[in-house]
């Protein structure tokens, strides 16, 4: 459902942010995308969603090339950006309605979905309030609801848990599982390895713009016996702990 083939991205004239990254995500899969800050996670996601055009390589969503068939590709995914601060003068409901209009969600389907999602994320009582008055977490919840309103087969979520309260984070994880169980797929970036460990079928670890691991968490742990996921991750990204730091 998501196919990244040799994706490479250069910012400006000389800053290679992503270098030859490839992966495939099939139906029913939840894939976690991990890596330190500045590793290139968001850049890969931006190439998958059509914000950036790869210098080389190809991104295909649900069978559609994002560069050559952008409208079909974009109709196939839900995207939650890492920054929920957009069109903040609108009320939550106005923003959701706008996204639903763009995706041409029929009116009779729209209302029950808004009701269901807003109740699951406990934001129903704030939908008629301008988003500028929302907390970061509330904006993030709204972005998730708006992204999912058209029920696309592919979810691409950039740091979706950031700012969410435990209840909302639980609901989102639950929804991700339900979505994958229906034969769809989810790609999400995260810094929280425990989330990846519990939720993902596969993880992709990226560092300095290059993919350094792709596989299941179990495979990764079996390659590094006796170590927890955090230690393995730090080893993979060649992190040297400072002297005297807690083990």
């Amino acid at each position: 459902m998501i196919s990244a083939k040799n994706l490479t991205m250069v910012y400006g004239t000389d800053h290679k942010a992503v270098d030859d990254v490839s992966f495939e995500i099939g139906k029913g899969e939840i894939v976690g995308f991990a890596g330190p800050n500045g590793a290139g996670k968001t850049t890969v996601i931006k190439m998958l969603t059509g914000i950036l055009k790869p210098v080389s390589g190809q991104a295909v969503i649900n069978g559609y090339d994002i560069v050559h068939e952008p409208l079909k590709a974009k109709s196939s995914f839900a995207y939650v950006a890492d920054n929920p601060d957009v069109l903040l003068q609108l009320t939550g409901l106005e923003y959701i309605s706008f996204i639903a209009d763009v995706y041409k969600v029929p009116a009779e389907e729209r209302a029950p979905r808004i009701k269901e999602f807003s109740e699951r994320f406990a934001i129903a009582d704030a939908l008629d309030t301008p988003m500028r008055e929302y907390s970061h977490g509330m904006r993030q919840k709204l972005m998730v609801i708006a992204a999912l309103i058209h029920e696309p087969p592919v979810w691409i979520l950039d740091e979706p848990m950031t700012g969410l309260d435990p209840q909302a984070a639980f609901e989102l994880k639950q929804m991700m599982r339900e979505h994958a169980a229906k034969g769809n797929c989810v790609l999400f970036s995260t810094h929280v390895l425990e989330v990846a460990e519990k939720l993902c079928d596969h993880i992709i670890i990226i560092n300095h713009g290059r993919s350094i691991y792709q596989g299941t968490v179990e495979e990764l742990e079996s390659r590094h016996p006796g170590k927890d996921l955090e230690s393995i991750f730090l080893e993979l990204i060649s992190y040297k702990k400072s002297e005297g730091s807690e083990d």
């Binding site: 950006a81 957009v86 763009v102």
Partner: peptide
């Protein structure tokens, strides 16, 4: 504009 990266991911020409 700051809305650019949100809007270009939508199915809008």
């Amino acid at each position: 504009s700051s809305d650019r990266e949100h809007l270009v991911t939508l199915p809008i020409t």
